[in-house]
């Protein structure tokens, strides 16, 4: 659409008059200068702090940091080392598992969005504020609160569970529950974002579809699955891509919920091997152990993951996303 609008005036101004042509060329030249001036700050900033660093990180991944801060070329040794390092494989598996668990938040958010979108519902904006609150909460602070609620001995969650006669585990230090505990916090934090995306998507569904369904006597459940969900698939696809990209980069929750003062990265937590993500492994290798080369190689594992998953998602999209 936008491209079409953009083309139209250009064909109009491109007249055959030689004078006009000269004026236009002159304007073009000054427009060039203006354009370069206007993109200069971003180009320099992105180049210096983002683009060139990609190249540098790639280079570092083939080096070992020397004792005096230099970098020594060691070929693909870091990549060979990480292929045989069980902590890398394990953290890659953990990251994927966390991401899959995060996807469970999406159908939940679709359901709540559909509930909120019902005609005649009061207090919609109050609910929206409440569900959105965790999105604007600092993840570090949220992680601290949840860690406290997950406390094994006097945490509120186990206290509430004991009311039902259930003895809750030490959620974040028990290897069998730690990942689920973190994933629940992740879903809680992202819920509002997904909800708002779906609410916006619901606005785009023509009311006639629902009226037609009503005339046909379709049940609420049937309407939801036959109209709401299919019409919402572009939003669901977008939320899925967003969730996957964010989840694959999880760091804050692991850092804040697994460590202790004497052990900031949580290596002595028995559950850590089951929760360590690629990003937290990267931080530990690059900035705690100062093994820059290995850390850089770990970062590229994540790049490969994200590219792969994104390509797969866009391929699969054709099978289930309906664009109206």
């Amino acid at each position: 659409m936008a491209a079409k609008i953009q083309q139209a005036p250009r064909t109009l101004t491109a007249t055959r008059s030689p004078h006009r042509e000269r004026v236009r060329r002159c304007r073009n030249r000054s427009e060039h200068a203006w354009a370069y001036l206007m993109i200069a700050p971003v180009t320099i900033g992105l180049g210096l702090f983002y683009l060139w660093p990609i190249v540098q990180t790639f280079y570092y991944s083939f080096t070992q940091s020397g004792p005096f801060g230099g970098h020594q070329w060691i070929g693909a040794a870091n990549y060979r080392a990480l292929a045989h390092d069980s902590s890398v494989t394990q953290s890659a598996l953990n990251t994927v598992f966390y991401t899959v668990l995060q996807l469970a938040g999406i159908p939940l958010a679709v359901f709540v969005a559909a509930l909120l979108n019902q005609r005649g519902l009061r207090g919609r904006s109050v609910y929206r504020v409440i569900y959105f609150l965790p999105v604007v909460t600092m993840p570090v602070a949220a992680a601290m609160v949840w860690r406290w609620m997950y406390q094994g001995d006097n945490g509120i969650i186990n206290h509430l569970l004991s009311g039902f006669g259930i003895a809750g585990p030490h959620w974040v230090s028990d290897p069998s529950t730690a990942m689920y505990a973190l994933a629940a916090v992740g879903i809680w934090m992202a819920f509002g974002t997904n909800l708002v995306i779906f609410l916006a998507g619901l606005q785009g569904i023509p009311a006639e579809y629902y009226e037609a369904a009503k005339v046909d006597g379709a049940s609420a459940t049937r309407t939801f699955f036959r109209i709401t969900v299919p019409m919402l698939t572009p939003s669901i696809f977008f939320a899925t891509v967003l969730t996957v990209i964010n989840s694959l980069q999880l760091f804050d929750l692991v850092y804040m919920m697994m460590g202790t003062p004497s052990d900031a990265t949580g290596q002595s937590n028995p559950a850590m091997p089951h929760v360590q993500t690629i990003a937290s492994l990267f931080y530990e290798k690059a900035f705690i152990e100062h093994d820059t080369g290995f850390g850089a190689a770990v970062a590229f594992v994540l790049v490969a993951f994200i590219l792969l998953v994104t390509v797969v998602q866009f391929r699969l999209q054709k099978k289930w996303v309906h664009y109206a």
């Binding site: 060139w52 980069q249 850390g295 994540l302």
Partner: peptide, 11 residues
């Protein structure tokens, strides 16, 4: 399109 980790060491 690439994750933020990629910029951190050189930054």
């Amino acid at each position: 399109m690439v994750p933020g980790l990629l910029f951190l060491i050189p930054q």
